[in-house]
């Protein structure tokens, strides 16, 4: 549904997006993750033909956005972090106005969408009387009016209270289940992305540092927690016996392929180190994200980044940023 190929965007001398290659397949809920200023909104702007790429190609729904924008966006809906409307007009009038920029829309269709998002009864009120949650629903309604196949959500949870965020999460799930939409969700809220998305890409300073399945992330980054009176001695013994790749935070171990918790326990006990507890710890997306982002920062600050995990005491394994070929 979305294909970015070697896209670069410069604002003056500032590089906002650097050599970004990204594919969002049909039917996915794809998460675009990164902190503020990472280049997410610029990437989305390029997908919607609002920002011109300096180089590279952007295709949406099979059409090049730069040369065939109307075709590319015909079946696309978008919601931005702070949905802006004509506050002095009614919700209904706003929907009429915005939908006419795509195609003539019948009152029946507007009614259907208003019902779907749960704004029935308030659609004739002026938008300035709407709560934040209602504005979010109106934003969703305008995005759904053209009957989209692809929905682009740029930081949709921003400014919402926890209840609103939960509601939004449920709605995104509904959109995917009931309407079968492909969804691109940009966010810096890791839990949101982790709970909703099937696949993610992480941006850092305009570059993609990771792309993969959320489950893949969890599996690849699982580690073992060890509770022992002398963690440093335990790590030294386990390294000596070549059972681990690294350690972090004074309690986590990354096992080598073929090693098990039983091997670790046996080795430590035989060396006289007490084992008070050992268990599998599944790394959250947040941990993973921070390890990647931290790694990138470190790399940019220190060009002589070591490949050894020992040189980075706070990280389990400092996986180098993955780049598309």
């Amino acid at each position: 549904m979305i294909e970015l190929r070697n896209v670069q965007k410069k604002f003056g001398s500032r590089l906002a997006v650097d050599d970004l290659t990204l594919t969002v397949p049909r039917g996915e809920i794809f998460g675009l993750l990164g902190h503020n200023g990472a280049g997410k909104s610029t990437a989305i702007g390029m997908m919607l033909g609002q920002v011109w790429p300096t180089s590279g190609a952007v295709k949406v729904c099979g059409h090049d956005v730069a040369s065939h924008r109307a075709l590319a966006l015909h079946k696309v809906g978008a919601i931005f972090e702070t949905p802006a409307f004509y506050d002095y007009l009614s919700g209904w009038r706003n929907l009429e106005i915005l939908s006419h920029y795509t195609a003539p829309t019948t009152a029946l269709r507007i009614r259907e969408v208003v019902d779907w998002v749960g704004l029935t009864g308030r659609e004739q009120s002026k938008v300035k009387t709407y709560s934040h949650g209602m504005r979010a629903r109106l934003a969703l309604a305008q995005a759904l009016l053209p009957g989209p196949e692809l929905l682009i959500l740029d930081e949709p949870g921003n400014g919402l209270d926890p209840e609103g965020i939960a509601e939004m999460r449920q709605t995104i799930g509904r959109l995917h289940r009931e309407l079968g939409l492909t969804i691109l969700l940009s966010s810096h809220q890791l839990t949101e992305v982790e709970q909703l998305c099937t696949r993610i890409a992480i941006l850092q300073q305009g570059r993609k540092v990771f792309e993969g399945q959320v489950t893949e992330v969890r599996a690849a980054r699982s580690k073992v927690a060890l509770k022992t009176p002398d963690f440093a001695a335990a790590v030294a013994i386990l390294h000596e016996r070549q059972l681990i790749n690294g350690s972090s935070d004074g309690r986590f171990l990354v096992l080598k392929d073929g090693s098990s918790t039983a091997d670790v326990t046996r080795a430590l006990v035989s060396a006289g180190v007490a084992v008070e507890g050992i268990w599998q710890h599944e790394q959250t997306l947040e941990d993973f994200y921070l390890s990647l982002v931290g790694g990138q920062k470190k790399q940019s600050n220190d060009h002589s980044a070591s490949s050894s995990e020992h040189s980075m005491p706070n990280r389990v394994v400092q996986r180098p940023p993955q780049r598309e070929p």
Binding site: G49, L73, V76, T82, P83, A84, Y86, T102
Partner: peptide
Amino acid sequence: EDGTLRMILSRPISRVRL
């Protein structure tokens, strides 16, 4: 300034037409 232009330009209308 109000942000509505970004909403409009997420639609397939051309800038010249707008």
